[in-house]
């Protein structure tokens, strides 16, 4: 996960209480970390919301993976925001979302995006990981957990 999540854009406590607000907060965090220019924030937010309108990316267990593609990025970039209160996300299990993994990928590189989806789904299947993640109070806590969570390949 440390290969695609941007440390400086992690949000340990989302201020947003809506899906759109959370997406805007996380894209803005990526912009503040240097991955977008200010005028790119709204188009990226709009593209992610357009994708959400085709079907929620709330995959259950309190996890959502809103995403889009965007020209001009050096690589796939992602961030993670936590919400203790939970955010309505139209998830498949109808639960509010507490962990929002936001991904923006290069249009010409589907591989890293698919790899990131696989990684997020697999780590999210661990009750222990979710418990430890939701206990994180700071960016450093989250990053330390991410660094200590190996990519969970071929467990099956």
């Amino acid at each position: 996960m440390k290969n695609f999540l941007v440390r400086d854009a992690l949000v340990p406590s989302l201020a947003a209480t809506t899906k759109e607000g959370a997406i805007r907060e996380l894209v803005t965090a990526l912009q503040n970390a240097g991955y977008f220019r200010p005028h790119e924030v709204e188009p990226v937010v709009g593209e992610i919301l357009r994708r959400e309108s085709l079907g929620s990316t709330g995959i259950g267990r309190g996890v959502a993976i809103p995403h889009s593609r965007h020209e001009g990025l050096p690589r796939l970039v992602g961030t993670l925001g936590l919400s203790k209160a939970g955010i309505p996300f139209d998830s498949i299990d109808e639960q509010d979302v507490r962990m929002v993994f936001l991904l923006v990928s290069r249009p010409d590189q589907p591989g890293p995006h698919l790899h990131a989806l696989e990684t997020i789904v697999r780590v999210s299947e661990s009750d222990e990981f979710i418990e430890r993640l939701m206990a994180c109070a700071s960016r450093d806590d989250i990053w330390s957990l991410i660094e200590n969570t190996p990519d969970p390949w071929n467990r099956e």
Binding site: I59, G60, I92, P110, L114, H115, L117, E118, V121, R122
Partner: peptide
């Protein structure tokens, strides 16, 4: 399961 299918990491 759409979620489980994502764990295949199936590229083009």
């Amino acid at each position: 399961s759409g979620t489980r299918l994502m764990t295949l990491g199936a590229t083009p």
